[in-house]
Structure formats: structure tokens, C-alpha cells
Design a protein around this nucleic acid. Structure first.
Length: 154
DNA sequence: GCCAACGTTGGC
DNA sequence: GCCAACGTTGGC
């Protein structure tokens, strides 16, 4: 099974690539969108590569790379009444929400802004353009390669 | 802070 | 099952 590529968004001031670098690894709790849930639950595999995207940032864009460290499993925060991610409709025996674990790969020496993504030839088919609000989206191997190269170029 | 886009909820 | 109301995302 070849690996897959993803783009995952995080608000920069909530959890940034630097936070992931510090932690080394983190769990991706709190996703409450069914399509994103399905991708984590059904499609992501350990070793898949991730573009770590800063949303609500100035500027927004891809800030680095991460990797899937654990495949989809029930989001325990949905069961925790004290959590802001609590959802009474999710039960341990029939969990509604799933998450994955993510590990740090690298922070780009140069973040690739949304504007740059827009103006880069070859990236015209990204899911980002049509499904801009989806916080977890598939990326083609080719697009991943283009963006990685842009980010690592100093 | 504004607001367009769009996913979700709930009445019917 | 439709669809209006509502809430959230995320760029600007």
C-alpha cells in the first residue's frame, strides 16, 4: 500500500508547527466534521505524510511537514464532559468522532503562503481551492512534492 | 471584526 | 426529504 498525502490545518495561535516541534508528537483531537472524520478513521495510515497548514495566520499557509504516527482511533475528548470537545452523542461503544496522532517532521525554513500556493503553476487542482474550509484534505503526491520543494528552498 | 461560504440541525 | 435557520471556518 503506497503512502498517502494530506493537508491538515491548525490555527497558528492554537497549535503551530513550533508547538509540534516542541512536543514531537501530538493527538489530533477535536475534529467535528464528518468528512474529515472519515479521512482520519478510514484512510490515514501510519507513515502518511502531512502538510501542516497554519490557518487564521498572517499570512496563512503551509508551515512544515508532519507524519501520521497512529491511525484513526476514537477521540476520547468527545466522552469527557469537561472538554470543550465533549459531544454527548458520541459513546465509547459507538464512537462518533475519531482522531489520529501526528509526529513532527520539519518546520519549513520558509513558509509557503496561501498566496504563493495560488500562484504556483501545477497546484490548480488542490482540494483547497474548492473545499477551502475542510480542515483535513487529501493532497496528491505531485502537489505534496511541489509544496515541499517550495518550503525547503531557502 | 466582517462576512462569504458552506456544513449541520431540526421543523415540517 | 426539503430547506431555512443557524453556527463555524477562515481569508481578508
Amino acid at each position: 500500500m503506497p503512502k498517502s498525502y494530506w493537508l491538515m490545518k491548525s490555527e497558528e495561535d492554537v497549535y503551530s508547527i513550533r508547538d509540534l516541534e516542541r512536543d514531537g508528537k501530538t493527538s489530533w483531537e477535536g475534529v467535528r466534521n464528518y468528512e474529515a472524520r472519515n479521512l482520519m478513521r478510514d484512510k490515514m495510515r501510519v507513515g502518511d505524510e502531512v502538510l501542516f497548514y497554519h490557518s487564521n495566520a498572517t499570512p496563512p499557509g503551509v508551515a512544515g511537514l508532519a507524519r501520521i504516527a497512529r491511525k484513526g482511533y476514537p477521540d476520547p475528548f468527545a466522552f469527557d464532559e469537561k472538554s470543550r470537545y465533549f459531544d454527548p452523542r458520541s459513546h465509547p461503544d459507538e464512537p462518533r468522532w475519531f482522531m489520529v496522532d501526528l509526529e513532527f517532521v520539519e518546520a519549513f525554513p520558509r513558509m509557503v503562503s496561501l498566496e504563493e500556493l495560488r500562484s504556483t503553476p501545477g497546484l490548480g487542482e488542490m482540494v483547497l481551492w474548492k473545499r477551502s474550509r475542510l480542515s483535513i484534505q487529501p493532497v496528491t503526491r505531485e502537489d505534496f512534492g511541489i509544496i515541499r520543494k517550495l518550503g525547503l528552498r531557502s
